[in-house]
Design a protein around this nucleic acid. Structure first.
Lengths: 197, 197
DNA sequence: CGTTCAGTTGACTAAGGTCAATTCCCGTGG
DNA sequence: CCACGGGAATTGACCTTAGTCAACTGAACG
């Protein structure tokens, strides 16, 4: 049994994209599952093909690529964020990503295939799918442009003063360095340099 | 008057995403316009809000951000590619990008607003919109992951041996350097280093 | 033939990476 | 309450690689 208030969180996140009738909303309900993760636990592993998406009810998570043994964090997830190996689900290939809980987390999840089925069934859900993909594309574009046009020393303050500063405070600095594409050592030096100004 | 064969090119590009009935296809027709660009000419300028999308019939183009006077190329367009300041159109904000013809180009274009109108009118078109956004998101994700996980020296061979090598041959090296996020001077050195192996 | 622009090369600088030592913080157990 | 252990962050020394500036080469085009 899933708590009503948890379902309400998911519903309002979806309604930010599209309005839904009660009937349309009910199409998703049977696919929902509750999931709990302990700090440090992995939800999705690299190479794996279990394609679920979900929403973070509480806690925060990160996802990263592993290459030559090194982890590269490309995203953080917080409360009310959709989470999942979206690209893997879209392309139907094994995930390149690992998604890990940074704190204890509570999730509400559903199979991506169920969402795809809704795309077939209900135009409103297809619209949701479009807007979700567009939202993602906008975020990715910004991220990419940032990597290409700014140095790490510029990206760091940008990240701090962005719309997430309060939340980033909770995240250990070495993950932030990783997100910026640099080592913790370099971030420490950048912080020092910025303080001296 | 637009040539039938040009329209056929656009149509088959769209049909790669979704099947369309004749009636659905006809909804787009009245919005089409033909456009010719000379080498070096800019199609979309930074700061501008004209939101058209199109397909490249012939020639190739690039788009770039301008920051502190420096240009950062983030994409190349070739025959049969959709082109446009997609993010600007989505967010309805002035374009951050400039899109420029690298050679003489022939384009078929339509207002993004017209496509949005089709989203309202026909579920099939909305599906096209979803698949287009998903396609874009996949490409952006790959690009971003590449920037974060690989050095320029690794990215260059990757680019060469990717699915575009034949086309990249046509593009001046300094644009490729720019795309890789480095200077032409550095790319020249990287090439030299790779040859020595 | 010059002019122009892309590409290469050399000398030097700047900035991040690596490795290792040290300090700080915090929680746990004696 | 204090001592210890472990992970995070900082710092120093040194290395690697891209950036910058400038000179030079080479090919394309008038």
């Amino acid at each position: 049994m899933i708590a009503d208030q948890d379902i309400a969180v998911l519903k309002s996140a979806i309604l930010r994209f599209v309005p839904l009738t009660a009937e349309e909303w009910d199409l998703l309900l049977p696919a929902l599952a509750y999931h709990h993760l302990s700090k440090g636990e992995k939800w999705i592993n690299e190479g794996q093909k279990e394609q679920r998406m979900g929403i973070v009810l509480s806690g925060n998570m990160r996802h990263y690529y592993t290459r030559d043994g090194a982890e590269k964090t490309t995203y953080f997830y917080f409360e009310n964020h959709f989470v999942g190996s979206y690209i893997s689900a879209l392309t139907n290939k094994p995930s390149q990503l690992t998604i890990e809980a940074l704190t204890d987390c509570r999730l509400l999840t559903f199979p991506y295939a169920h969402l795809q089925m809704l795309y077939e069934k209900a135009p409103r859900w297809e619209r949701f799918g479009r807007l979700l993909a567009e939202y993602l594309a906008i975020g990715l574009e910004e991220r990419m442009a940032g990597l290409l046009t700014m140095s790490p020393e510029e990206r760091y303050p940008e990240l701090l003063h962005g719309n997430k500063q309060k939340i980033l405070e909770r995240i250990p600095q070495h993950y932030i360095a990783n997100y910026l594409g640099i080592t913790p050592v370099s971030l420490s030096r950048i912080r020092k340099r910025l303080l001296e100004k």
